[in-house]
């Protein structure tokens, strides 16, 4: 076992890991941050998405040791400082962008990454960007609507199906 340190949601953390420990496992089991969900663990579903040094990554496909020294943001770091929902989270709630909620942490992290590089994405751009995030409730229409709303765009014309 090796001790690694990194910054998670603005706090300095450290813990013991093996070579094979995934970043997702370190967050969940090492730090108790279970908001990062593990769906497929094969780099497909995106439920485990976090930001690694500001970049969207699938944390099940990054070794914890490879992330040593980095700055990680997980879903637990997405609410406002006073604990209220962030604009993106509130939009998901408002527009029913979650059903069972399993994919939601990854969807929120992907949305935040998208809006950082494209403040007003088109519906097509949103769908393209979320290609690596699966919702097995198939609630995509409302997820897309929530993302568009979070970017401050009028979503009244987008069908809710």
């Amino acid at each position: 076992m090796t001790t690694i340190s990194m910054t998670v949601n603005g706090k300095a953390v450290s813990g013991e890991v093996e070579g094979r420990t995934l970043l997702s496992s370190f967050l969940r089991e090492g730090l108790g941050l279970r908001g990062t969900h593990i769906g497929c663990e094969t780099t497909q579903c995106g439920a485990c998405a976090v930001h690694l040094d500001g970049q969207l990554v699938k944390s099940c496909s990054v070794l914890a040791m490879d992330a040593a020294g980095a700055s990680v943001t997980s879903i637990e770091g997405m609410a406002n400082g006073d604990g209220s929902l962030s604009v993106i989270q509130a939009a998901f709630q408002e527009h029913h962008g979650l059903q069972c909620g399993f994919c939601t942490p990854g969807m929120v992290m992907a949305t935040a990454a998208l809006l950082k590089v494209n403040a007003k994405p088109t519906e097509t751009e949103v769908r393209h960007y979320l290609e690596g995030n699966m919702c097995r409730c198939t609630g995509y229409h409302n997820i897309v609507k929530a993302v568009m709303a979070a970017s401050g765009q009028d979503v009244s014309a987008i069908a809710a199906e």
């Binding site: 995106g46 969207l56 990554v57 699938k58 496909s61 990454a113 998208l114 690596g132 995030n133």
Partner: peptide, 9 residues
């Protein structure tokens, strides 16, 4: 290639 998260790694 892949999706945005994959392209970042």
């Amino acid at each position: 290639i892949g999706d945005p998260a994959v392209r970042n790694r």
